[in-house]
């Protein structure tokens, strides 16, 4: 299995997800066929990831392209769970759209360098740290989709759903951050160095923490909360890959591409 085969799996998964998204609009409550199609798409995507893992002989968690695979995978799972739990008909469509974006990027830029796991990444902390983070990203994406809904359709009652997604997302995000801190002490000598990725992780963390705290205050404006969620999601994107495009942030110790300071 190589990235050359990805297009077949991607097309199949996206077709299944699109069918599922469309089916969600018919009938009352959650639609059986929608769920079946959606799960099918998830399985197809998962099969590609699994096969790639076996052929690389290391977890596909190193390159940006590989992390995007997991993101599409976990995002669709989170989207399905959100649909099952809150039953909004358009959740599957939005989740499919997000998965499509990251899949398209992967089709255009598969990133086949760095085939093996370099010494710096040979650690028991590697898989838990990255996967827990990616899972939190998926939950926060669901919250972001709901916040967009709230902004576009003010009558939508989405705040309590956003609360629940943020609480779960923040638990995963915090665990990911702390696993990173423990690993950093083993690898770099310090729990926290305020490098660009860590700094933006802190900004993201604080924004979601602020959301949950301000929800307990007497704030009348729903729009304030939706915008806070949108800001937090933007900050998350900056910390995840935005820093790779900021010229002053390319020295980050988290940068594992060749000719960087990452060890």
């Amino acid at each position: 299995m190589t990235w050359a085969h990805f297009i077949w799996f991607a097309v199949l998964a996206l077709a299944a997800w699109s069918a599922g998204s469309a089916a969600a609009f018919s009938g009352k409550g959650t639609n059986r066929m929608a769920i079946v199609f959606y799960v099918g798409g998830i399985i197809v995507y998962g099969l590609f990831i699994g096969a790639l893992w076996i052929s690389l002989e290391r977890p596909p968690l190193v390159t940006m392209g590989e992390t995007r695979l997991w993101y599409s995978f976990f995002l669709s799972i989170a989207g399905l769970i959100t649909y099952l739990r809150w039953k909004y008909k358009w959740i599957l469509s939005f989740a499919t759209l997000l998965a499509l974006v990251f899949t398209l990027i992967n089709l255009l830029r598969p990133e086949i360098h760095n085939q093996v796991l370099m010494p710096a990444l040979r650690s028991i902390w590697f898989i838990p740290h990255v996967t827990v983070y990616i899972f939190s990203y998926a939950l926060f994406a669901s919250a972001f989709l709901l916040a967009l809904t709230g902004l576009i359709k003010p009558s939508a009652d989405v705040l309590s759903a956003i609360d629940n997604l943020c609480k779960a997302g923040l638990s995963f995000f915090t665990i990911g951050m702390l696993l990173g801190a423990i690993w950093a002490k083993q690898a770099w000598g310090d729990f926290w160095s305020w490098d660009p990725k860590e700094t933006w992780a802190a900004v993201t963390w604080l924004l979601y923490v602020l959301y949950l705290h301000t929800r307990k205050m007497n704030v009348k404006s729903k729009k304030f909360f939706y915008l806070l969620i949108v800001s937090a999601f933007i900050s998350l994107q900056i910390g995840w890959y935005g820093i790779n495009y900021l010229p002053w942030a390319s020295h980050s110790i988290h940068n594992y591409s060749p000719n960087s300071s990452g060890k």
Partner: peptide, 24 residues
Amino acid sequence: SITHIVIALALVLAVCLVQGFMPA
């Protein structure tokens, strides 16, 4: 109070944002 907690968190957020745009 929740107000003070939010203010304190917002202050840390502000300095972290500054750090986020600092040159190496």
